[in-house]
């Protein structure tokens, strides 16, 4: 039992699974819709630090009738407006969405993708069934992380660019979970946990001997 506690302390010291970015409160009731002329829609976001990603949620809206579609997310380095792609894309297939409703979609297969603190998240939709008309929803500024209210990122088929609604609402629904990347320099709290666990192990060993 005591050993398990010590191992737990060590595990806590090296893992901090957490919400890295949260832009899910305060629905602005506005959506940017792909069929109006966009192949890609996304946002530039700032996490607290370089991180590894476990999962990402975003919210789509269907202006049309009941449909199914596939959604893909790709991460990019920040640039003008974006830099190189980070890793490969991640796709969720066969998403069912009712007409005139919003649907939150989770990308849970990110595999601890290492991303910089400043990055661009881009979504595309494919294989939209007949009647479907898909867009992404704008929400209030994030409660965790930061993002500019005055632009998001689009591609109209000619290239990526910063775009805006001029309504100062240009933040997409995003919930990002993962871990702050190991920088090689543990924080003071981490040192405390590690030293505490090692001390407990030493004490236990000395008592046995």
């Amino acid at each position: 039992m005591r050993k398990a506690l010590i191992l737990g302390m060590l595990a806590t010291a090296v893992s901090h699974a957490a919400v890295l970015y949260n832009n899910t409160t305060g629905d602005q009731q506005f959506s940017a819709v792909y069929s109006t002329g966009f192949t890609h829609i996304g946002d530039r976001v700032q996490l607290g630090a370089e991180s590894t990603l476990d999962s990402l949620d975003t919210q789509f809206y269907n202006v049309g009738t009941d449909a199914t579609f596939d959604a893909t997310v790709t991460f990019y380095e920040a640039g003008s407006p974006l830099g190189n792609a980070i890793g490969s894309s991640f796709t969720v297939t066969g998403i069912s969405i009712t007409g005139a409703t919003s649907q939150t979609v989770s990308f849970t297969n990110l595999g601890s993708l290492l991303v910089p603190a400043d990055l661009v998240v881009i979504f595309t939709v494919q294989n939209v069934s007949a009647g479907g008309d898909i867009g992404v929803n704008f929400f209030d500024p994030p409660s965790v992380g930061t993002s500019s209210n005055t632009f998001f990122i689009t591609n109209d088929g000619t290239g990526f660019a910063e775009s805006w609604t001029l309504l100062d609402i240009d933040n997409l629904y995003l919930l990002v979970n993962g871990d702050v990347a190991n920088t090689g320099i543990p924080e003071p709290g981490t040192w405390g946990l590690v030293l505490g666990a090692l001390g407990a192990l030493a004490y236990r060993r000395s008592r046995h001997s």
């Binding site: 009731q29 506005f30 959506s31 940017a32 819709v33 109006t36 929803n137 609604t165 309504l167």
Partner: peptide, 15 residues
């Protein structure tokens, strides 16, 4: 601005 759907009204807005 980009034309966006106002889901509250069902209309599209461009500022």
């Amino acid at each position: 601005g980009v034309a966006v759907l106002n889901r509250a009204t069902g209309f599209w807005s461009r500022t």
